[in-house]
Design a protein around this nucleic acid. Structure first.
Length: 922
RNA sequence: GGGCCCGUAGCUCAGCGGUAGAGCACCUCCUUUGCAAGGAGGACGCCCUGGGUUCAAAUCCCAGCGGGUCCA
């Protein structure tokens, strides 16, 4: 780390008369204007000193503070940027949630592939950090949801020229620290009290020097100078143990916690009271929490000390709490009892804000991805609400935050919260019954519920061990929850995860130019001429590289074009087309010859079908949004020639009624025959105009992006489309099915494929009608009637079999005597049911029954023995079955068996009396 | 995306190779007419679907469909 020391010696510090010091408590190096200062300013070296002693000239609300920051940086040459969604997976696939403002610009802007929306810029970015979830409410300063205010500048080294999407230096370390200082000064802070702690930053493959900016015990800003990338040959070894070297771009990445600034301006005991005063007031009242004046004072004093609490850093929270209690001179249990409801309320307020952000940004609850995180937070919140006795509905609480955050999809948010709450209630009820059954079972055995059951209950049924304890206690069963419960659960999941296949890259391609893509110029054209630049032999066939092509390579869920490449000598079939680093590879069954001129001809019918289906996919997505709500967005898509599918995020199953409405809206758009327009707008202008909903199918790199506009639906898309919606012909939804919780798959067909699909469905119906000998309209009713009748007949047959069996038993002409007990040995070729019924009837009359049958291709026996007769039926069956090459068994009074050797059945039955006697005497 | 659990009467579930069960609900009768009322009787099952193993599958194995849950 010391290698970076020079990086921190700024001219600005020199000019301003800063001193570099080392903190005797934390050992870190820091910069300060105060020559007498010894400690770095961060707990545990220093306490919070702003509580009851606000650090700025005025108090600010969250909204006022945000505006103060943004307008200050606007006045200092920065452009204000609208915040991005909290669902970072909308534009990058390496993370789920937005955890910092810089996330907005990774990876395309930070790597220099795409220009920033403005440079320099300022933003206040909503973020969610799930890591802090256990600290929320307890430490007084942690929140799961927060806004990171920031100013960013994107620089590229002069010497690399215009290789990147931005060039030159906007500003770097000195100006960054100066701006930070100026903002503190603007707010009325005492600059003498500010410390800049040297704290190198590492993350996501990048690194650089950084400062933590401390004021009155609170970390109010982090100034990161991202300037290095991971490199085994690099000169700098950072704290993660990896080596790093300087990169061509260098970026100012700052973060000013909006909540912290608001808190410091107000000097309230906890951040929560500064950030959500109204909601906390509401929750306190609703839960009936009122403190005496003395208690208020105690809570207040405890808050000042709670800066030391951090579940990551303090091993045992109870211990830390005890320390606080001791310092205050009160009983630890009493203090906990007093603080616990307040901590819960703080957490509820924070969690509701998190949920408002998530659902406001149209995350749909699910068992995967961001949807799962949302579900976890919601369930946790529900438990907290019940725990502390707040009886307001959860959707109302979330809505309070959604309203404050000014979301306009509040109805959907409430709908989602209610649906999720219902699902959770159902899970809890299921769980409760399960635990009750288990508790009774183990209580009877006088054992405690084993840990394996607890793990099973949690992992497979979502029941917290605390809940098991509670229910079990009611039923008189004991449970012991091990301290390392959650790591035991984790153990169960070890060894999961699939290996990822490496993508092979041909070095040969590196020397070829990018293929000119003609398919965007005129999407209707199907013929072209080109020069063969290279032919690469593959295991099966050849990869042909041309200078230009009409062939659309597989991508964006659209399969590749097929067709032919021909010159005067030869014609080769193209059966697949792929794109690698801008080079289009045509997989062909022959070699057209390097350097040759070829005529390319697309399989026109295939391409047309794909185009219809691609445009139809946009139309279906548009229609689904109209019918199901604005939260609907693409979760995946695959186009085909006969059918295509679109996976959409939605929090419920799609009903038949909704399917019909989607179909109607889609076909209405087809019939209106609106034009399908292609544009290449500047990406930032497009984003500003249409938002991130543009990127339903992924985010393309580059300054300009291609968009497809149909009516008022605009999407970034690289596929080929028909020119008017009327060209689709018609759209028919084939099926909807859930692919995972929160994602529904809509399969549909377009154009002639739609007609074919409808015909297939009709064929099935007509065939069914034909079999039933009725008209198609009558099929449902007739099928129902037949099914009912079929069941009735089954019952009648059962009854008749019983009657028949009784009649047979009553006939009784072939009764023999086994040492004084009457017995019947008989062959009757019926199914197992008949044999059983007959045997039962015989046994009823006090007769031993030995019945054999050869129906169904195998020999079968049933042996019944009345009570008080000393013959083991299982034994008899065993011996009989042995003679037909099989086996059998059952309880002593009623046994069944058989074997494959049908021919031996009669012989076996002949021997039955002997066997009965032998078994009796045994 | 991966792991695990579950599909049996209208509901909640038991059964886990050998004749499909219980409680609640339902119907009839009796006894009582009061906070989950008692008694007697009755009806109600493609044991999710399709393959396989077996003399025999609700039960074991495989696949599918449907539901749930945990993790990234």
């Amino acid at each position: 780390m010391s290698e970076l020391e020079a990086e921190y010696r700024l001219d600005y510090f020199e000019e301003e008369g800063f001193h570099r010091k080392q903190c005797p408590v934390t050992d870190v190096h820091f910069w300060t204007r105060d020559p007498d200062r010894e400690t770095c300013g961060e707990p545990p070296a220093d306490d919070y000193s702003f509580i009851d002693n606000p650090g700025f000239d005025e108090e600010y609300t969250l909204e006022e503070m945000r505006e103060e920051f943004l307008s200050f940086f606007e006045e200092h040459g920065h452009e204000r940027i609208e915040p991005y969604p909290v669902a970072a997976n909308r534009w990058r696939d390496d993370v789920l949630l937005t955890q910092a403002s810089i996330y907005d610009f990774q990876p395309l802007v930070t790597s220099g592939q795409t220009p920033p929306p403005a440079n320099p810029l300022t933003i206040s970015q909503p973020c969610i950090r799930m890591q802090d979830i256990d600290n929320v409410g307890k430490t007084g300063r942690h929140t799961m949801a927060f806004e990171m205010m920031a100013h960013h500048a994107f620089n590229a080294r002069e010497e690399v020229g215009d290789e990147y999407a931005y060039s030159g230096e906007v500003y770097w370390k000195d100006e960054t620290v100066e701006l930070c200082d100026q903002f503190f000064e603007h707010m009325g802070a005492d600059l003498e009290e500010i410390t800049y702690i040297e704290d190198p930053w590492v993350g996501g493959g990048n690194a650089g020097p950084a400062f933590e900016v401390l004021y009155r015990g609170a970390e109010l800003a982090t100034l990161v100078f991202m300037s290095m990338e991971q490199d085994e040959e690099g000169d700098y070894e950072m704290k993660d143990g990896n080596r790093y070297s300087p990169m061509d771009t260098y970026i100012v990445d700052t973060g000013y916690g909006l909540e912290r600034w608001t808190w410091v301006s107000q000097g309230t005991p906890t951040v929560y009271e500064a950030v959500y005063p109204d909601m906390i007031e509401f929750l306190k009242e609703n839960a009936g929490i009122s403190l005496s004046e003395e208690e208020e004072k105690l809570v207040h004093r405890a808050a000042k000390l709670s800066g030391y609490l951090d579940i990551d850093e303090v091993d045992d929270l109870t211990e830390a709490r005890a320390d606080v209690a001791e310092e205050l001179g009160v009983d630890s249990a009493e203090l906990t009892e007093l603080l616990h409801p307040l901590e819960t309320i703080y957490a509820i307020a924070d969690h509701c804000r998190t949920l408002a952000y998530m659902f406001g940004d149209e995350i749909v609850p699910s068992n995967v991805g961001t949807g799962y995180l949302a579900r976890m937070v919601l369930r946790r919140t529900k438990r907290l609400v019940d725990d502390v006795g707040v009886d307001a509905p959860l959707d109302e609480l979330v809505d309070m935050q959604a309203e404050r955050l000014d979301y306009d999809n509040r109805d959907t948010i409430r709908d989602i919260v209610r649906t999720e709450e219902r699902k959770y209630r159902e899970t809890l009820e299921r769980g409760r019954r399960k635990v009750e059954n288990l508790a009774v079972e183990y209580a009877e055995k006088a054992e405690s519920i084993p840990v394996e059951e607890l793990i099973e209950l949690y992992d497979s049924h979502g029941i917290q061990p605390e809940m098991v304890e509670e229910i079990a206690a009611d039923r008189g069963a004991s449970v012991e929850v091990p301290d390392d419960f959650y790591s035991l659960v984790a153990e169960r999941h070890e060894g999961e995860g699939a290996s990822r296949e490496a993508v092979e890259r041909s070095e040969r391609l590196a020397n070829l130019p990018e293929t000119e893509r003609l398919y965007y110029d005129d999407q209707e054209r199907t013929e072209f001429e080109a020069v063969v630049l290279d032919v690469i032999e593959r295991e099966e066939g050849y990869d042909v590289v041309l200078d230009q092509t009409m062939f659309y390579p597989e991508g964006g869920g659209q399969p590749a074009d097929h067709g032919t490449l021909a010159n005067d000598d030869t014609t080769v079939q193209v059966t697949d087309v792929q794109i690698r680093d801008g080079i289009v590879l045509h997989r062909a069954d022959g070699n057209p010859g390097k350097g040759e001129f070829v005529r390319g001809q697309l399989d026109v019918e295939r391409r047309r079908r794909l185009m219809r289906h691609h445009t139809a996919t946009h139309v279906i997505g548009y229609a689904a949004r109209q019918v199901l709500g604005e939260h609907v967005r693409q979760a995946g898509a695959q186009k085909g020639t006969r059918r295509s599918r679109l996976d959409v995020r939605h929090y419920d199953r799609i009903s038949r009624e909704e399917v019909k409405r989607i179909e109607a809206v889609a076909n209405d758009l087809v019939m209106r025959n609106v034009s399908v327009k292609q544009h290449w707008p500047d990406r930032h202008e497009a984003e500003e105009e249409h938002g991130f909903d543009l990127y339903q199918g992924g985010i393309p790199p580059g300054q300009n992006i291609r968009t497809i506009t149909i009516d008022d639906d605009v999407q970034a898309c690289g596929g080929t489309h028909v020119s008017r919606t009327g060209d689709i012909g018609t759209i028919k939804i084939l099926t909807t099915e859930p692919v995972q919780d929160g994602v529904e798959r809509i399969a549909f067909a377009a154009g002639d494929a739609a007609i074919e699909a409808t015909q297939r469905t009709e064929d099935a119906l007509y065939e069914a009608a034909d079999v039933l000998d009725v008209t198609p309209e009558d099929v449902p009713e007739t099928a129902e009637r037949f099914f009912t009748e079929w069941k009735e007949r089954g019952k009648t047959i059962d009854r008749l079999k019983t009657e028949l069996a009784e009649a047979r038993a009553a006939a009784g002409e072939d009764e023999i005597d086994v040492d004084g007990t009457p017995a019947v040995v008989r062959r009757l070729d019926g199914d197992a049911d008949e044999l059983r019924a007959t045997a039962n009837a015989l046994v009823e009359e006090g007769t031993v029954a030995v019945l054999g049958s050869a129906s169904g291709g195998s020999a079968q026996f049933v042996v019944g023995v009345p009570d008080d007769v000393g013959i083991n039926a299982g034994e008899v069956v065993g011996r009989l079955a042995g003679r037909v090459g099989g086996g059998g068994g059952g309880p002593p009074d009623f046994a069944q068996g058989g074997g494959p050797d049908v021919d031996a059945l009669d012989d076996a039955l002949d021997e039955a009396p002997e066997i009965l006697r032998a078994v009796r005497s045994a």
